[in-house]
Write a protein that binds this DNA or RNA. Structure first.
Lengths: 359, 359
DNA sequence: GCGAATATTTGAATCGATCCAACAAAAATG
DNA sequence: CATTTTTGTTGGATCGATTCAAATATTCGC
């Protein structure tokens, strides 16, 4: 009952307190934001009045407008919000971002949307000082939308041609080469690639022109890395099937079906994400194929789940947490400059790769 | 270079556009928020000016103050921010909250803090329309702090005596009884309980008075449920060791050490969280004990990881996602009333429980 | 061509605070 | 006691928008 009435009443403002306590609003403000500069007697009186009137303290909405800073950074993606809590890669990244924000008491606002229109609106109306962009599917649109806000932002993934946007990512070519060399050195010669998208909304085998006109240069670079290295071992890369998935279970399985439906099955799979690699391991086991006995798999990302599955996944590990931390710092310490950072990657050999079988 | 200069310049305001286009603020505002009511010719002119001057669109900071609503809900905890992305229970809950927010285009702001002082500040200054409180460790303080904001909020976990706070949780007694009955029916008679805290910062064996004076009534209710049901099977509950942990690896292992250091080891463990149960399974396996051959374990929560471990965990499943959804809806549709909801739970029998061994 | 009806535009008020130059009062100094 | 200093307080300006009653244009019917 009481709370219902309270709900109806207009909330108490700082000005109300000031009037009731017989001081100016300037002084009233000081009581809360810089109590040390107001005389103890006055301070206590104002506080008492505030308490008695049920004042909730200075409303951040007002403060914010004046201060011009929200003290929060937005993390945006075109995926639904739950992506941040489901996707293992995103989760580790968020942990890094959280850490950097925690350290300076900055908040995190998650931005996303079911549809395009809402996404635009949500980005326009997010109360943040800057954005970190998870550029997966639809990354280029996300960048365009964010640019209009004219707030600092940093793209996760260097995969943008556009050198005018700040970004932080990894050396995709080097990472891919590491993966390819590892398999080639184990004697593998027949490969298949489970690829991320080269452009939005694509799925299926990628043709050379798809690759050439790639929007996502990160994907292109990884493929280039694979191919460069394999060529050095005399593998004819033109015959390697490259299947674009949406980096989730369904399309990855479809890709595996398609790959294994072809003539000679691969003895090694290069997956551009651990998520796909994990799905592949399950799929192969279901089909009675041994990993790595029959087929070896190398993932990409270095997500925690990879160490826990059976067999544990050999992968290219990104310093995900560190990327997250740096991205957050870039926004927090923004100085107007465009910054592009490239982080190193590391091959982690676990048990999903082994010598090529002679069959 | 250009961006550096832009960074220096004071950002363009709606008023600047209005002046430049020769219209009033009112009209300029309408061009962006209700374009249909302004004459096409004027609209285009204003838009052109805005475009040309590099106007970023109406600043949400201003809009917000006027509107009084932020269109975002805060999710708060006393744990560090990364808790939201690490803890399996929290993650599923967040997925539910996300879903409800996505549906109406509301944002989510994560609130947390390294230390007490900052937590208070972060709660006071969070730009949100209401809070969802993860009441784990330090839950009562979190509630007190939030109450001062005089914004709607809902506590996750009914574990509060305080009937004046909105909350949503589960029937802890019923869930606990389900777990206890399951084990008793399998013939177990020697039990140990891995307990959540009865009050803040506690760890170690819980004495009857600790239980009586419990702050966290959720913990108390679960224990009560266990004991009630076991009594019905003739078990002397007074001898059951109850070890309070902090629901993480270290203290849980300490608890197991302590429990198994006692005279007769239990044949069944009742864990008040899946997290503890999972740690227990690992710990037992390391010690060469078979689960469920030597010791059976029932968890609590029904988190995804429980299904994937070896052996898969028998547990009491909460409708976590649904709780999250409802909590978010409570804030979004807030009407000033205090609402307390209790959700049902379900026993999920997997492979971590089996008949009591006759040893 | 005139008045009524309708469509646009205006500008002041408001949202809830913080900041700061100017002023007032009290305390310290000579 | 007069003059600095120091300390506290005041009230107007500002942050960047939206709202709405009133003023002004335009269109329409006859």
């Amino acid at each position: 009952m009481a709370s219902l009435l309270e709900g109806q009443a207009r909330p108490i403002r700082l000005a109300d307190i000031a009037k009731a306590a017989g001081v100016s609003h300037g002084t009233a403000s000081n009581v809360f934001s810089r109590p040390e500069i107001v005389r103890a007697e006055v301070r206590e009186r104002v506080k008492a009045v505030a308490e008695q009137m049920g004042y909730a303290g200075p409303d951040p909405k007002g403060r914010l407008l004046r201060a011009g800073k929200v003290n929060a950074i937005g993390v945006a993606t075109t995926e639904p919000l739950s992506y941040f809590f489901d996707d293992p890669f995103a989760r580790v990244m968020m942990a890094g971002i959280s850490e950097a924000c925690d350290a300076v008491g900055a908040g995190i606002a998650l931005v996303s949307a079911a549809n395009q229109e809402k996404l635009a609106w949500n980005i326009q109306s997010a109360l943040v000082d800057g954005f970190i962009l998870f550029c997966i599917e639809g990354g280029s649109r996300l960048v365009d939308l964010t640019r209009e806000r004219r707030l600092p932002f940093v793209a996760l993934e260097l995969g943008f041609q556009d050198e005018t946007v700040s970004a932080i990512g990894i050396d995709n070519v080097a990472g891919a080469r590491l993966a390819a060399r590892h398999l080639a050195e184990l004697g593998h010669r027949r490969f298949a690639v489970l690829s991320l998208g080269f452009a939005d909304d694509r799925t299926g085998f990628a043709t050379p022109e798809v690759v050439r006109s790639a929007v996502y240069t990160g994907t292109r670079d990884r493929l280039a890395g694979y191919f460069e290295e394999l060529s050095r071992f005399g593998v004819d890369t033109a015959n390697i099937p490259v299947y674009e998935t949406e980096n989730e279970e369904k399309s990855t399985k479809a890709g595996l079906e398609a790959i294994f439906a072809k003539g000679e099955p691969p003895t090694a799979i290069l997956a551009m994400s651990d998520r796909m690699a994990l799905v592949a391991i399950d799929w192969l086991k279901e089909r009675g194929l041994d990993v790595p006995g029959d087929v070896s798999i190398v993932g990409f990302d270095g997500v925690a789940d990879g160490a826990l599955c059976t067999p544990p996944l050999t992968t290219i590990a990104q310093p995900i947490t560190e990327i997250g931390r740096r991205a957050a710092r870039m926004i927090l310490d923004h100085d107007g400059a465009v910054r592009r950072e490239t982080m190193g990657v590391e091959l982690i050999v676990r048990a999903s790769t082994g010598p090529a079988c002679k069959g």
